[in-house]
Design a protein around this nucleic acid. Sequence first.
DNA 1: CCTCCTGGGACGCAAAACGTCTCGCCGTGA
DNA 2: TCACGGCGAGACGTTTTGCGTCCCAGGAGG
Lengths: 338, 338
Amino acid sequence: MWQRLIDIQKSIVPDILSHMLKRLDILSCIETEQPIGRRTLARQLGMTERVLRREVEDLSQLNLIKVDAKGISISENGREALKEVEPFLTLIESRNDLAAQLKKQYPLKDIFVVRGDADQNAMVKDELTRLMAEELMKNLFKGAVVSVAGGSTMASVSKFLRPKHDNLLFVPARGGLGEDVAFQANSIVSHLAEATSGEHRMLYAPDSISKASLESLKEEPMVKEIIDLNSRSSMVIHGIGDALQMARRRNVTQEVMSKLDAANAVGETFGFYFDAEGNIVHKVKTIGLQLEDLENKTSIFAVAGGDSKKEAVKAYLKLAPQNTILFTDEAVAQHLLG
Amino acid sequence: MWQRLIDIQKSIVPDILSHMLKRLDILSCIETEQPIGRRTLARQLGMTERVLRREVEDLSQLNLIKVDAKGISISENGREALKEVEPFLTLIESRNDLAAQLKKQYPLKDIFVVRGDADQNAMVKDELTRLMAEELMKNLFKGAVVSVAGGSTMASVSKFLRPKHDNLLFVPARGGLGEDVAFQANSIVSHLAEATSGEHRMLYAPDSISKASLESLKEEPMVKEIIDLNSRSSMVIHGIGDALQMARRRNVTQEVMSKLDAANAVGETFGFYFDAEGNIVHKVKTIGLQLEDLENKTSIFAVAGGDSKKEAVKAYLKLAPQNTILFTDEAVAQHLLG
DNA sequence: CCTCCTGGGACGCAAAACGTCTCGCCGTGA
DNA sequence: TCACGGCGAGACGTTTTGCGTCCCAGGAGG
């Protein structure tokens, strides 16, 4: 809703928004280095003295900074503005620079980096899913089939989708991972279908099930359809989670927990747990999309952000197919580059 | 929450909003007059050709308008931006011009006019209460006593108050008007007290009560305290409602309804119904603030907006004391001036 | 046909922006 | 106490931008 306001500002007065970011940059530099002189500051920010001087004059007139014989320092208003604007930055400017650096290092189809840390600012997570939803909509075509994984991140995607393309079909990537209902792929596909005026299929596969029953379940027509749809779907959207965190959230058995622990699992995505090297160390026994299926998808939209997921994402990139499109945040991106 | 973003933008780059509004003005003019030439447009908007030309060049580069041999016309993007930004305008710019005009006509302490129509855009109502809360906070002092009326508008005031002053005391202006619980003065004062870390008093006066019981109730110490506090409180905050709408919401008896109807009641405020000339035509029999008490208050904050309340507000101004501060919207203001 | 309105181009003046240098001030450290 | 380095502020000449104004070719409508 409110994101629209910023979008409109971007489209009507883009230069002023960038001007605002520039001033914020100056402001935050002043905050850390205060008191600091004009020349030193100009050198540090990579601008000429005169240009910065104008900005300083303006900022001083706006009572955001104080300037005296000792140098420039930030005022109470300035500090407050800087602090309060911080959460919004993620909505205003994404870190395309970091994305470009990442692209050189990782051979993915595309990479998007959003400002901030999803763990500390809820808006970052929303912005991630919003971006993903936007890109997804660009890639959708009439009759497209989309495999959808579960998780808290995926659950908010439907907020940002609008009906636009016809005959879309959303299928749960895998069933029965032990999530809360709201985070289950089944719930999510129904929301996605509703948001886009498309259709969806459900997959009813119990959480814990014997190998034998699983095999017989696979012969059920409705289940077979899901497996088939997943193997020929053209897109996949999924999140990436921290291994132990996900395991805990899903209340896995002590046995599995020890197994994950022993294998040094760091990440998880739609039921597959992997270690820091990208080796699959555990698969949740259930029905649906397999890793091999990923190769022939048009696009795989992977979303994950927040400091707590940085190891998981790094590891995931070692097993991610080249048709992956990654959506992440600054916190993770820094770690991937560092 | 989000209003803060706009505030910050105002404080860091004040140009952003004025420039944006200017462009929106141009855009909306183009939309209605298209296709239109530069010169004609410039004359109409009261700016010189060259200045408008620059704007047109920019807007055209931003794909918000199309310009060809026939003249300037709005593009799909432009139309969309114009439409989507409309609800936000109320937050960006208030109609100080209308307020100034109103001040000439009505001898009130102060008048604030917010853009838009509260009936059609929920944000307008929020902005009204936000503005009121802000002004209220400016006027508060240590130990201030504030009489608070009920109603849906007052119920949202607490959202915009922050703890700042000490020992504030909020008292319900009048009790037992028949509102929903959430809109009762009793609930509202408790929220206000919580928001400001202040205190509050409750007034337990039943809705329908015989005259005799009412008189004996007035002798109760707790009730007496409320009456006393209301008579010596320094500020009052209240909304203004349409008479019949309020009567319906409060489920008044058929008898009262006919009385209001016969007397041509148009407005209501904290239990007093009045006609178009500002004569009180009905008083809800309950305990608390009396109209005579208003005279010696420091400030009376009256909030009302939306086309449906325009008659009520107009009538109210005929009985409002000079220490009233009115917060209203464009829809009402236009009617007051016209 | 003419006429009116259209966008675009051009020209010259004024103001604003800018790079650069200088000066006097003040705090710090020798 | 004195010298020095960093500070803001002022100044000045150059460059850039913005602006007002006029003109021109083209197209639509009468």
